[in-house]
Design a binder for these strands. Sequence first.
DNA 1: GGTACTGTACCGTCCGGACGGTATATTATT
DNA 2: AATAATATACCGTCCGGACGGTACAGTACC
Lengths: 188, 188
Amino acid sequence: MESPPPERTARERLLDAALHVVAQSGAGNLTLEAVAEGAGVSKGGLLYHFKTKEALLQGLLDRHMRQLEATFTRELQALGGGPNAAVQAYIKALIACENLGLDNEGSLSVVAAVANDPTLLRDLRREVQRSYREVVAAHPEPLRAMRLMLAAEGLVLMDIFGIEVLDPEQRSAFHEDLLAEAGRLRER
Amino acid sequence: MESPPPERTARERLLDAALHVVAQSGAGNLTLEAVAEGAGVSKGGLLYHFKTKEALLQGLLDRHMRQLEATFTRELQALGGGPNAAVQAYIKALIACENLGLDNEGSLSVVAAVANDPTLLRDLRREVQRSYREVVAAHPEPLRAMRLMLAAEGLVLMDIFGIEVLDPEQRSAFHEDLLAEAGRLRER
DNA sequence: GGTACTGTACCGTCCGGACGGTATATTATT
DNA sequence: AATAATATACCGTCCGGACGGTACAGTACC
């Protein structure tokens, strides 16, 4: 009796709107009113879904972490496992997360959080460190593997700051190169 | 009656204090009062040096850019020039900038700016893009060179978010590795 | 006495969040 | 089946506090 996929939940729309505001006005100017308006909801409506501003930011981070995690495991499974596959999956997850929305949806959450309350990042920190340890420490060429992962990370983060060191074609070439290089690492 | 070098100017102390606040409370909670107090100065004193908050942020960015630029040219000169030397100098500049103060002085400026008013980054963007183009586009192995530079950048930016994927010894090993790798690139 | 700088007192605005109200949907009771 | 009770989703208003910025009265050295 309802079209399940086309109908985004208000909660989801609010998170999108929040990221939009951050991208447009800066993470420090993230206000509840702006978010509410962007989602076509009143301020009271917003506060129904997220009791406090902190809860909104936490929601942003949670969604980001879930997406990252999901993409990673999906890609890893698709690649069949192995040390190099893990590196590739991690890179793919980063890239995918970045291209989800118009304005670099994923990692903007991190900026929003760090701007308003750095302590919110505790969970994310733990998670990311765990990922790195799992992927890198188990790899026979840890330094080279980490180099590739950090390069992908660097590109994403530069994007967040609007610093485009590569135009679109160069970007995808670079991505391909990263993935190919990850495939060429010594596996044992 | 004054020791010339140990006496930092009030202006300088204010910029330091601003970064300290950002590191501690998040870029969004950067207030003039907090900065003034951190620098041991009254609010009026701060506003004498920086007419507006935007001016303060601009000051932060300017100093960061100057430091980056200075370290880069210094290192480049020390290394004697050449495509690989440029890559190495860039990486060294990034690392040096990061280790200037206790809390990752350099790149925190960027976060502070992007949080309060993203348009402030225009100059920085131009500068960074120019650097990349100069260093990378002129290099016979552009993709690999960029990979190394972005890896360094990624590590720095992760640090800003407090995500430490490497403990101190591993870090310096990683830095050494990056620089060594940059030295091994094909030069023509 | 001028220049460089400090300290205080204050104003207008904006924001987070609390609160009470409303309308619809779901469930329970009889 | 009708009614009552409860839950869900949202709206509009208001307030206290914080923040950026202004004004001005110093102070200290040259």
